[in-house]
Write a protein that binds this DNA or RNA. Structure first.
Ligand code: ZN
Ligand code: ZN
Ligand code: ZN
Ligand code: ZN
Lengths: 147, 147
DNA sequence: GATAATCTTGATAAAGATTATCAATTTCAA
DNA sequence: TTGAAATTGATAATCTTTATCAAGATTATC
């Protein structure tokens, strides 16, 4: 069994909650899916695999995965929540192409440390941050010039 | 007439669109309102001033103000779009208290320049960015310890 | 394995923010 | 003043996400 499944089971036990076939299946498909996918995108995958699973369960399971630390929510400009694997991934921010939707994960240590300085400067106890850079990727710039 | 009203009129003319009392009134109240307000918060102000104005018009006018450069949209984690005056304000990012909702506007030039480096590093033509820092402000930390 | 308490599920409704529709009204250039 | 075109307000529709709830699944206990 994948270590993520174990983490989920441990989490469920620790909270006196129950295992289910649906949860196992949804986690399995989540792990196989591309990063930064929406609940609906995952639901479509789940439907192909097992049409009996409803989308409320997909939503609920994604929330559960976030609670257990396996998943992280992320919101881009379109207002639709995306979900990405958290386990085994370091913190990162996102660079997004506004033409094709490509998402690149980025980290800049100087930015990270200056964010910490901003929290301190204004007397805030830091919790988290989000940073998104929006631009046009190389391929799409090329396309614009060509087309 | 406030220079913002002139800017709006100029913009409308340039796009062959028309002036209206509602637009003037909504802009006037928008300029008087606190920064980072939601469409609904502005609608409530508008209602007090002129109950005949519908909320669709408030939404439409906020979009118009954004087009004309007088206003900027900003989305926090709760999924509700906020609007803030753009004219006469430099670019800035936001530091948000997750307890009381206080919003502080911040700029760090080192962060800004490193964002530029990230765009370059990954071959993106830069358009814009958003950065939000979430934490607990001094007052709320104090409250937690006291209460 | 049976039992019972509790949790989870799927279908559906509901919520909440924003946008689309459309007839009536207003604006503005001619 | 006139008439084409834009705007308005009311309302419905959309879209994502959450709440509800009866029916079914899970788990600890015997
Ligand atoms: Zn691209
Ligand atoms: Zn990511
Ligand atoms: Zn606070
Ligand atoms: Zn601001």
């Amino acid at each position: 069994m994948a270590s993520e499944q174990k983490i989920l089971l441990e989490y469920l036990k620790s909270k006196n909650r129950k295992q289910s076939k649906q949860r196992t299946e949804i986690l399995e498909l989540f792990l196989k899916s591309p990063r930064h996918l929406t609940a609906n995108e995952l639901y479509i995958q789940v439907q192909k695999h097992n049409p009996a699973i409803g989308f409320a369960t997909v939503y609920r399971t994604l929330k559960l995965l976030c609670e257990s630390g396996l998943c992280r929510e992320m919101a881009l400009e379109d207002g639709v929540t995306r979900y990405e694997r958290q386990q085994g991934y370091e913190h990162h921010d996102h660079l997004v192409c506004t033409k094709c939707g490509k998402v690149v994960e980025v980290v800049d240590q100087t930015i990270e440390s200056h964010q910490g300085r901003l929290f301190k400067k204004y007397g805030f106890h830091p919790q988290r941050h989000r940073m998104e850079l929006y631009g046009i990727c190389k391929d799409c710039v090329k396309g614009e010039k060509a087309g």
